[in-house]
Nucleic acid binder design. Structure first.
Length: 482
RNA sequence: GCCCCUAUCGUCUAGCCCGGUCCAGGACACCGGAUUCUCAUUCCGGUAACAUGGGUUCAAAUCCCAUUAGGGGUGCCA
């Protein structure tokens, strides 16, 4: 069998979409598992909406994820160009060939007329399709009108008898009666091809063996098969992946879910976690493992294990996986990643910063949480309600006494390592007949300004002996004024 | 309306192809508990599903049919 060649063929008409990453991942895994090639092709035939900025963003996002392609608009390849807008002549030639062979015809119908017949068909509860009005025009006549410069498109002449079927690798044989297949527009009036023509021609010319794409394409696949037939080509294998869903099960959309890959990158999801999560959408490991790197996903990948029902994109599970990956990173690596866009405090991690990272590594699930969670370590303490200092079953005076003792202890401490401070404060609590936990909470509030923080004594060491003393004084001041 | 796809815990899924080992397993989330200076991590435990109805069979989550539900398509968008 010939070498496997697959492609991701996004349309640069919007932000880099999570669905694109999802399909790219499965194409990538399949290509790598089979020792084949993974191609990136830009489907920018919608001249109204396509932009190079979008294309750049998609390329950048997939690279961020680590899904590098073997051939593409930026790296070239044996079938360049990989941007459809640069291949317009190829599609025109192919469309013309179909006209010549009678497999396609010119259509001069106006948009208004098309809208009108659609309305009529809807009203009569009929299938909505082109009525074939221009199909009967004499070819010579049609050629004259074309030469006269009349606006027109080229449509596929579908033989309405019989049925068209194809093999979907995941779903088996899918058949549809030809009377339900429309005379699809192949070449638009602006001279550019529609998706249907362009993708069929390119998949063929680029030697694509497996078309792994989203489920939404199933209903137009018969048109593609008919096109392959019209050209006298053998269709590739089709693999229709399930569609990612919103919580309400509808196709994943911007309105109900963050869909931009930029969003996930900016929130501090790790690319490797993102891939792992996406892999879980529709795929399962034979041994049930849920956390696995891309290399392991590829190593055991098989289309047989892809499920067909549409998975709900569950942010909660993504966060969990992200947390798993964050905790698997060593501190230096985590620090480097945080410094790469997730903190305003420092450019390159120093020792103190790494200590802070070590303290939050088990507490964050997204890199973006870092700055807030460590605010009291690097900035000052935010304003807090002095009432927080007073613990249950204790009085304001108790608290003041505790803080004064604490200030003294801190000022006189010869050893400010966590073990030493903890021992000292435990001793202090014991002598005062107070619960250590209560004392610690008072200190926590005074030192961090929060009820929830990183471990107290490690945090104090990080903040520094002097600054801790200062913060205790501030707490005392607050109580005095309360 | 018409065409097509799908259907196991709230969510992701295993099992289904090759019926019995499944009064259905794992994970996330949730609820308890243990550890603990808070939070988190970690560790234990728990709640929770084969859409419905018919077949076939000694036996069905697994095979067949119907129904229902959800989704997608129905564009000179992709």
């Amino acid at each position: 069998m010939s070498q496997v060649r697959v492609r991701i063929a996004p349309s640069p008409t919007g932000e880099p979409h999570v669905g694109t990453a999802y399909i790219a991942l499965f194409n990538y895994a399949f290509a790598h598992r089979e020792g084949g090639k993974f191609i990136f092709r830009s489907e920018d035939t919608d001249r109204e909406r396509s932009t190079t900025a979008n294309e750049d963003a998609i390329l950048r996002s997939l690279k961020w994820l680590g899904l590098q392609w073997d051939e593409g608009p930026d790296v070239g390849g044996p079938h360049a160009p990989y941007r459809q807008s640069e291949r317009a002549a190829i599609y025109k030639t192919h469309a013309d060939a179909l006209i010549e062979s009678g497999k396609a015809y010119y259509c001069f119908c106006s948009a208004e007329r098309l809208a009108q017949i659609r309305d009529e068909q809807a009203k009569n509860k009929q299938a909505i399709m082109y009525d074939g009005f221009c199909r009967g025009i004499d070819p010579a006549e049609a050629r004259r009108r074309v030469q006269a410069g009349e606006p027109r498109v080229i449509r596929l002449a579908v033989d309405r008898s019989g049925e068209t079927c194809f093999e979907d690798k995941l779903r088996g044989r899918i058949a549809i009666r030809n009377e339900g297949v429309d005379d699809q527009v192949l070449l638009k009036s602006d001279g550019f091809p529609t998706y249907h023509l362009a993708s069929v021609v390119d998949d063929r010319l680029m030697g694509v063996t497996h078309v792994i794409r989203a489920e939404e394409w199933i209903s137009s696949t018969p048109k593609h098969v008919l096109l392959y037939n019209a050209f006298g080509w053998t269709p590739p294998m089709f693999v229709h992946m399930p569609l990612l869903r919103n919580q309400d099960k509808s196709k994943i959309s911007k309105r109900r879910n963050p869909t931009s890959l930029d969003f996930y990158r900016n929130e501090g999801y790790l690319p490797e976690a993102m891939l792992n999560f996406l892999a879980l959408m529709g795929y399962s490991m034979p041994d049930g493992r849920e956390v696995f790197p891309l290399s392991e996903f590829i190593a055991g990948f098989s289309l047989d294990r892809v499920s067909t029902s549409g998975p709900v994109f569950d942010l909660q599970k993504l966060e969990w996986i992200n947390g798993e990956y964050i905790r698997r990173l060593d501190t230096d690596e985590l620090a480097t990643r945080i410094c790469n866009g997730f903190t305003k405090r420092i450019g390159v991690p120093d020792e103190a910063f790494k200590k802070a990272v070590a303290l939050i590594r088990e507490r964050i699930r997204k890199l973006s949480e870092f700055d807030d969670m460590t605010a009291f370590m690097f900035g000052g303490v935010e304003d807090y309600d002095p009432a927080l200092l007073i613990q249950k079953k204790t009085t304001k005076d108790d608290t003041i006494a505790m803080l004064k003792d604490s200030a003294e202890l801190i000022a006189g401490a010869a050893d400010f390592t966590p073990a030493a401070t903890e021992a000292a404060f435990r001793g202090m609590a014991e002598r005062a007949g107070a619960k250590p936990g209560n004392l610690f909470m008072v200190l926590r509030i005074a030192v961090t300004g929060r009820k929830v923080s990183t471990p107290l004594f490690e945090t104090m060491e990080l903040i520094g002996q002097e600054e801790c003393g200062r913060r205790i004084s501030v707490a005392l001041g607050k109580l005095a004024g309360a």
